[in-house]
Amino acid sequence: MWPVPYFEEYKTMAQWYVMYTKPRQESVALENLQRQNYSVFFPQARVQKRKAGQGSVQVVEPLFPRYMFVNLEVGVDDFSKLRSTKGCMDLVKFGGKPAIVPLELIGLIQGQVDGDFVLDLLALNRLEVGGEVRVAEGPFEGMMGKIAGQKSDQRVIVLLNFLGAERSVELARSQLDKA
């Protein structure tokens, strides 16, 4: 069961803790923690990745790889079962005591994710006319430029300064990074 936005019902007694998971086992840990009726918050991020032979593809991956948040109440929840939960390693601890995550931090992250608990990092990296960019791949790799116009959803016109003058070049969005 996913937590209620901003977690109002947990303000008084329960605290948020950080669960450290086994490598690439976040979904296994999430499923098993939820099966045991723990309240878990597992934020993810939508990002663009470059894959050999496929170009640029959108993927959803953990916002904090190998970490998720678990809401627990001392004296009510059984902390000892967490270590033996499939996919989980242990709670993050400092000085032997589980580290408590401030409710405000959980609320801040919760306020940035969508209904599927995914933070769209692509929206934060949108290219706009007049914006500065760096060419990430291709013959102009490493050059800085400015977006002059949009050709289509996948292509933009970039002004690059080379050979002593500003030249317009049509490039794929996937070739560019926001400066």
Rank of each mutant, 00 (worst) to 15 (best):
K97S: 11
F64H: 07
R126Q: 13
V60I: 15
Q112T: 10
D114S: 09
L63P: 00
Q54N: 03
V92P: 02
L119D: 01
E104A: 14
L72R: 01
L108D: 14
E128L: 05
R83P: 04
M68G: 02
K86P: 06
L72V: 02
L103D: 12
D77M: 04
L63H: 09
Y67K: 10
P62S: 11
G131C: 10
V101Y: 04
R46A: 07
F64D: 05
A45T: 12
G95F: 03
V133T: 03
L119M: 10
L119V: 04
D114Q: 06
S84F: 06
V76F: 14
C88V: 12
P43N: 08
D78K: 14
G87A: 07
K97F: 07
Y67D: 05
V92G: 05
L82E: 02
Q110N: 15
K97P: 01
L105S: 10
S80K: 13
P98L: 12
P98S: 11
L119S: 05
D78M: 13
V59Y: 04
L91E: 02
E104T: 10
V92M: 12
G107R: 14
V60N: 03
P62D: 10
P102S: 14
G111H: 08
L119K: 05
G107V: 07
F94P: 00
G96M: 03
M89Q: 10
Q112D: 07
P62N: 15
P43C: 08
L105V: 13
N71S: 11
L121Q: 14
D114L: 04
